[in-house]
Write a protein that binds this DNA or RNA. Structure first.
Lengths: 76, 76
DNA sequence: GCGGATTTGTACGTATGTATG
DNA sequence: GCATACATACGTACAAATCCG
């Protein structure tokens, strides 16, 4: 989940956790991330928080998002 | 439709309205509820709102849903 | 069996309101 | 005031299952 005690915002914590999985190869290029609702449950946060995290990953170029399909690990 | 002025969320209002029809016998066991698109139009809400209402009814055990067929009043 | 229409399932985009620190 | 976080509610798009001519 997420560290309530940390000063780091939830959405940044979540983005970092996902980035780590991508960089470690746990999530490979072209693979879909878990859906927003799945991440919501897994990390115990609201959808808006999940969306903020994914937005960060998009801005870092780590993922690409397609409406109605999902968010995928970017190809490098 | 739905009461815009009420503090009660639309999807809860809609779930309550449908629950009332079930409990009053207006909708009988094994009978299908109106489709999501019908409820959408009848109550003037978005599909996501209809689905949230039906989800509540499912959680209460009042209805059962089958993909591609519809949602039916539970037998009791 | 096929193709189109219907219905539910999933997923994202966006906006607004409330609450908290 | 501002950022964070959650909940509600609108919309669009596409997939999956079913139904029917």
């Amino acid at each position: 989940m997420v560290d309530e005690m940390s000063p780091v915002p939830f959405y940044v914590q979540l983005a970092d956790a996902l980035a780590k999985q991508i960089e470690s190869g746990k999530l490979k290029p072209r693979q879909p991330l878990p859906s927003e609702s799945t991440l919501q449950q897994e990390y115990g946060v609201a959808r808006g928080t999940v969306r903020a995290a994914v937005r960060l990953l998009r801005e870092r170029g780590l993922v690409v998002t397609f409406t109605g399909r999902g968010t995928f690990v970017a190809e490098r």
